[in-house]
């Protein structure tokens, strides 16, 4: 995998670069949220109910400047968005990372082992995939309860099958190539073949899926929060902020929905655009030089 070429192909479209920049900024904001934010929106003692529902640009009773207004509990919306970014990105990345590891392992294993093992593993994957993501997640959360860990588990459950299927397809292609036969005849151990040879060549499609699943995970978490099965209410994620603001929009308190909504939109759109760029980059012929190394 010639990464330099990949990046060059990727950068051909300015939108892809902008998306990458946007996501990087979001990541930085999320990491440094506690430094940038004027208020810790998750600290109940820092809130003042009398400051609830202030419009953007107001100054609260404790002298804080609320750039984007406050919500119905007195939380500074700008701070809540920053902390919410942390949750959205964190949950998506964590579940994505676990999902990739789990799914790729299963997929490559299935492809390598073939026969019965392959059939059983893929049947499980099929069962998982035959289930619409949002229902899958809702049922899991209804059973195991809400909370950060459970949301991550639910998102992993929704995602791993995609990685498994993709990894298996890519691995199958690789397994048909000559160098694998060669490696086998050289008595290279199966683990070595799988990890050092097959895996790197599956990375391309996996990365694309990862970007798409990142977007989907963020969006799914938001939908789950909206439907009421999301995270802790005093530590709202972006989806929960929108859900809270939803009921206030009709009475003119638009800032509770619009701004978190924009943040969510930028996050998801960036991830999707990055996926697009990656897909384009990996397809381009010069990038897909198989690494036999």
């Amino acid at each position: 995998m010639n990464w330099k070429v990949v990046f060059r192909e990727y950068s051909r479209d300015i939108t892809s670069l902008l998306a990458l920049a946007a996501l990087s900024v979001a990541l930085l904001l999320a990491i440094f949220a506690s430094v940038i934010a004027v208020q810790d929106p998750y600290d109940l003692t820092a809130l003042n109910l009398m400051d609830s529902r202030l419009p953007p640009g107001s100054i609260g009773e404790n002298g804080l400047y609320h750039l984007l207004g406050t919500d119905d509990q007195g939380r500074d919306v700008a701070s809540a968005i920053l902390y919410g970014l942390r949750i959205s990105i964190g949950v998506a990345v964590a579940s994505g990372a676990i999902g990739i590891v789990l799914g790729t392992a299963v997929g490559i294993l299935a492809a390598y082992l073939g026969g019965w093992a392959d059939a059983v593993l893929m049947r499980i994957v099929d069962i998982q995939l035959s289930f619409p993501a949002i229902l899958n997640a809702m049922i899991l959360l209804a059973v195991f309860g809400t909370g950060l860990l459970n949301i991550i588990i639910a998102l992993v459950a929704v995602q791993w099958a995609y990685y498994a299927r993709t990894a298996r397809s890519a691995a199958l292609v690789e397994l048909g190539r000559e160098y694998v036969e060669a490696a086998k005849s050289l008595s290279f151990g199966p683990m070595r073949i799988m990890f050092r040879h097959i895996l790197p060549n599956c990375l391309g499609p996996l990365l694309v899926i990862a970007a798409v699943e990142l977007a989907n995970a963020i969006a799914l978490e938001a939908s789950l929060s909206f439907l009421g099965t999301g995270l802790r209410v005093t530590e709202p994620s972006l989806g929960l902020l929108i859900a809270n603001g939803y009921s206030l929009m009709l009475s003119g308190h638009y800032w509770l929905t619009i701004y978190p909504g924009l943040a969510l939109l930028i996050l998801v759109a960036s991830a999707n655009l990055i996926a697009d760029g990656l897909r384009r980059a990996f397809i381009s012929r010069s990038a897909v030089a198989v690494d036999h190394g």
């Binding site: 109940l44 003692t45 119905d72 007195g74 209410v233 005093t234």
Partner: peptide
């Protein structure tokens, strides 16, 4: 839900470490 959170906020302000569920 909002009442619950408000109560949580007010109890936090007398020193209780609150979790609102």
């Amino acid at each position: 839900g909002a009442v619950c959170q408000a109560v949580g906020q007010q109890l936090a302000q007398i020193g209780l470490k609150m979790i609102v569920e």
